[in-house]
């Protein structure tokens, strides 16, 4: 059974200027042990969706079923108890500024009414897990962003949750720190068997740690599936834009750029995935065919000595050369697709 099930969820906001439909009949099913990504552009409704998962935002319509319990049907008290099993971390960390690190980690246990000595003991263990045992007496203002997020993660784990919600948890961090935090989340997912739901606008985050992903656009799920599959063959317009411009923040201007990139002539997008080979494939292809290509965008990472990621190539006008190149790439186990706007 799915650990989180979202059924027909809608949320509208009434404001002076009219109503906004932030979420429009969302259906989702997240399995236990998943690292589930929810990706979309700014304003797509990601935060609203994740806040509906622990009912910080009350849905206008629909159900949120966590571990078989319909959260929308619980009493206030039952809901507060259930929230102990659904932890959350935030873009701006949201640590209590006037409490030191260890007291912050104790907060969920204090709320649950645990004994102080027990809470302190558990908090120390958690700080070790996030490698911050030497900062127990520091205050959040004395820590870096990455350290603050580690404290927030330790705090989130303090209530022994089954699910961890992350709302843009790495968006305020530099790339290196982002990677460290993502590694930590992955470790938590695997060692502690905690299901993780990650909200982000960065495809690179999804690629790095998620196994499944839903793309949300204008309050609706544009597509959903295995990360590998969606990254290789995005079907929706929103999916294509996010995948092709994946490493950057995708605002409207970036969206425009991505569309521009796809105009003109013959362009192909190739995806380096698990089974790609070790050789410098583009260089060899050019040598084999004897015609140059234009690398319009390259976004690859070295994963264990193999390139992973994507490239967009502008091919020569010669149709024969185009065909040969595509055949060559396919021969080398690369996913190739033509791209157009």
């Amino acid at each position: 059974m799915a650990i989180v099930e979202v059924k027909n969820l809608s949320k509208t906001f009434d404001a002076a200027g009219g109503t906004t439909t932030a979420l429009n009949h969302i259906n989702l099913s997240i399995e236990e042990g998943d690292v589930f990504g929810i990706i979309g552009m700014s304003g797509a409704g990601k935060s609203t969706l994740v806040r509906c998962l622990n009912l910080l935002e009350v849905p206008t319509e629909g159900q949120v079923i966590v571990e078989g319990k319909d959260l929308t049907a619980l009493t206030n008290k039952e809901l507060r108890e259930e929230r102990g099993r659904i932890a959350m971390i935030f873009q701006s960390f949201n640590l209590l500024q006037q409490k030191n690190v260890i007291s912050n980690v104790c907060v969920p246990m204090m709320i649950q009414g645990k004994k102080k000595s027990e809470a302190k003991k558990r908090a120390k263990e958690l700080l070790e897990l996030v490698c911050l045992q030497d900062k127990a007496r520091s205050y959040p203002s004395q820590l870096s962003g990455g350290q603050c997020q580690r404290v927030a993660i330790a705090r989130a784990l303090a209530s022994d949750p089954k699910i961890l919600l992350c709302d843009e948890a790495t968006s305020a961090l530099d790339p290196q720190t982002t990677n460290q935090i993502l590694d930590l989340l992955k470790e938590i997912n695997q060692k502690l068997k905690i299901t993780i739901i990650i909200i982000t606008h960065q495809m690179s985050v999804v690629q790095k740690i998620c196994n499944r992903v839903a793309i949300i656009d204008h309050g609706e799920i544009a597509e959903m599936g295995e990360v590998e599959e969606i990254f290789t063959h995005p079907k929706s317009q929103a999916g294509r834009v996010l995948v092709i411009d994946g490493t950057q923040e995708v605002g409207t201007s970036d969206r425009q750029k991505a569309v521009e990139l796809l105009k003109e002539k013959k362009r192909i997008r190739i995806v380096f995935s698990k089974n790609s080979s070790y050789e410098p494939v583009i260089a060899n292809m050019v040598l084999a065919v004897g015609k140059p290509v234009n690398i319009l965008k390259a976004d690859t990472q070295d994963v264990g000595g193999v390139a992973r990621g994507q490239m967009i190539l502008g091919l020569p006008d010669d149709a024969d050369a185009q065909e040969k190149m595509i055949a060559y790439l396919k021969d080398h186990n690369l996913a190739v697709e033509e791209v157009q706007a």
């Binding site: 640590l95 649950q112 209530s159 919600l165």
Partner: peptide, 14 residues
């Protein structure tokens, strides 16, 4: 900070 309040609400604080 509203974020701090939201964080403890997400932990089940009354």
């Amino acid at each position: 900070d509203a974020g701090e309040i939201e964080a403890v609400q997400s932990m089940g604080a009354g």
